[in-house]
Design a protein around this nucleic acid. Sequence first.
DNA 1: GCCTAAGCGAGACGGTACGTCGTGTCTTACC
DNA 2: GGTAAGACACGACGTACCGTCTCGCTTAGGC
Lengths: 215, 215, 215, 215
Amino acid sequence: MTSRAPDPGRRNPRSRAAILAATRELLAEAGFRALTIEKIAARAGVGKQTIYRWWPSKGAVVFDALLALSETPEGAESGTPGTVELPDTGDIDADLRTVLRATVAEFADPAFEAPLRALYIEMITDADLAADYRRRMAAPINEAKRRRLRTAQEQGQLHPDADLDLIVEMLYAPLTQRWLLGTGPLDRDFADRLVTNALHAARAPGAAAPDDQRE
Amino acid sequence: MTSRAPDPGRRNPRSRAAILAATRELLAEAGFRALTIEKIAARAGVGKQTIYRWWPSKGAVVFDALLALSETPEGAESGTPGTVELPDTGDIDADLRTVLRATVAEFADPAFEAPLRALYIEMITDADLAADYRRRMAAPINEAKRRRLRTAQEQGQLHPDADLDLIVEMLYAPLTQRWLLGTGPLDRDFADRLVTNALHAARAPGAAAPDDQRE
Amino acid sequence: MTSRAPDPGRRNPRSRAAILAATRELLAEAGFRALTIEKIAARAGVGKQTIYRWWPSKGAVVFDALLALSETPEGAESGTPGTVELPDTGDIDADLRTVLRATVAEFADPAFEAPLRALYIEMITDADLAADYRRRMAAPINEAKRRRLRTAQEQGQLHPDADLDLIVEMLYAPLTQRWLLGTGPLDRDFADRLVTNALHAARAPGAAAPDDQRE
Amino acid sequence: MTSRAPDPGRRNPRSRAAILAATRELLAEAGFRALTIEKIAARAGVGKQTIYRWWPSKGAVVFDALLALSETPEGAESGTPGTVELPDTGDIDADLRTVLRATVAEFADPAFEAPLRALYIEMITDADLAADYRRRMAAPINEAKRRRLRTAQEQGQLHPDADLDLIVEMLYAPLTQRWLLGTGPLDRDFADRLVTNALHAARAPGAAAPDDQRE
DNA sequence: GCCTAAGCGAGACGGTACGTCGTGTCTTACC
DNA sequence: GGTAAGACACGACGTACCGTCTCGCTTAGGC
């Protein structure tokens, strides 16, 4: 079982960084369709085998390239990578507006958008990668979102029965969809309307009905 | 300008049908990654050039394969393809439940799911294809959804100011997201909860804030 | 059976010629160890697949490159490719000297030597190629050599029982060996001594002992 | 200058033996084309560097593997490796028959044949290796052959002017050629005919004409 | 009996070439 | 002129070895 995996202790961190940087550059310059393992290796000044040795797929490289982007700009190995926290001014409406507007801004930044788009494409046909993404990227962020909503709920700003998990999806899925497919403008107004409507749902009585009648 | 376009009158309908059928079969059997123009041509007993002559990209073939699936099972060229209508029993809540549960069922059908997934992947990197999809497939369906909500609004089941376009997105985007990325179970319960929460939003006062400051 | 072989009628003769020319050039420039399919394809301006489609191995390409060298310098498709004839002045000794000296000269010509050396290396590990070589290149030449010796034998210049096949091998194998391995100088003197000694053997009485006691 | 050469005193004889044994095994099992440094190292349980440290090329390893085969099966470091002696019963004809038949038998033994064939291939493109082979393996054997012929010559069994060096080549080159390229059966009959004809040449008057007219 | 330098197993590394697959274009022969 | 067939130049795939390089670990002598 342990016999096939290479020893991470021997891994050359310079090569790793060069590969991730090359991946980001190529995505920003030419888009996902032009991203090939050969070009990454050539740009990074690295043998192809070094990529195949450490990543199971091109999607996994893209994933790491994106992760590396979020991490330590330069300094220490990031304080506590798992702890994400949303702003809490006491006003759930304003706070969500802030957060969704920030997300809209991220989607407008090519340096972030290009690798993320590439990652989504890979995830759609690679369930393993999708699971990895959920576990390592999405899960902590979603947890933070739910936490913020729960605080608001406890403070009486949301209905005690509100279906908080669903509210999170209703907030973000429309955003993601417009970004991925261009099905509509992706601006602050859209973010604001999403917040307004999602919070209406979360304030209504009898929101959650988890008496799951199985299909 | 006219010199390059092939004459559609001379097009061989048997070849066209064979190509679309082969595309669907290959997608169902082996998934999107294994779908190649060469395999489609071989399976359809058709020259590669016949595909390149009539479709601008592989995504366009997939699109047509999916369209052909929705159309006339065998008989006439379908009465009026543009006219979609949602059920209207007078109870918006029940009707939406019916419709979303049907969508959930569609996503569970491999014959439908495989080409649609392939199409989504293509659209994410092909804006032209995405625009085509919106115009020819999504637009009429979305129009029907909005129509049904407007009827309910006019009957007083929804708030007069409800942001109906947004409600449609909040209903369907979470569904699509779970399907594409597997971010959660995709069942009747989820559909029902979506309907419940979206309608809460649509019944709240002051829903829409159409003081749309365009970006 | 016939299904796997490509149709030679569709073969592009310009590509074929370019491949063989590139092979000869690369061999002359850098020797056998530097000869790769990729370099041949690049130099010939040809896709690798075009080589793999028409030749079963690198050795087969080298073989054809060598054959093409011997054929039609430019004009017609060569009169009768199979008919080789050695000089016959009536003096077997002088004629053999002429022929072996010519062989020595050939081995000194890099344009001929390089591909032939490459071909020998391939043949040593590829029995199929070796058989092909014997059938298409060596056989007609050996037949001509035996013919010339037989004429001399009929004219009484050689013993009636002389083992002519063996004499041919004793004439040429030492030449080939010195060429391949550099086991000694390869000059006209060596050629002359080979002729002298081989003819001594061919003139001795009781040369052949075909009372083959099988091992 | 002395800084780069490793100290032979520190060489691990167990590794050396394992490498040579692995080389022979791999050659016998899969032939020359499958012989790689990596496979040798893996089979021998040795680091690649240990091979690169002590041998300049793969051919050199093969050479040593072959040498080790001829040497001491296990015991002492072989009496005097340089001293080879051909049988001498007083009958040159019978003795040569014995020796050539033994050579034929060697070529039929895969344990000996496989490394020797590999060595020949290397020598054809590696002049240094060829020179080494001549000096350390071929020279003493050829010297013994010439010695035996000279003895026969002194006893009047061969002509006083016989070109003994050439006779040796005419005896062995045809044998080697048939072995390497499979140009004909390699059996006792062939060996016997070679001896008969070569000795005819060696008994004829005026054999050698070393009045070398330089080309 | 310690120290240090070498050989050693292991295997990551930057590369080159392999042989295969798919792309989109072109050509040939048929209808 | 559309079509089935498939050759073509091209480029990427994922794998195998190359020869070099760094790691710890053993294993001498030399002190």
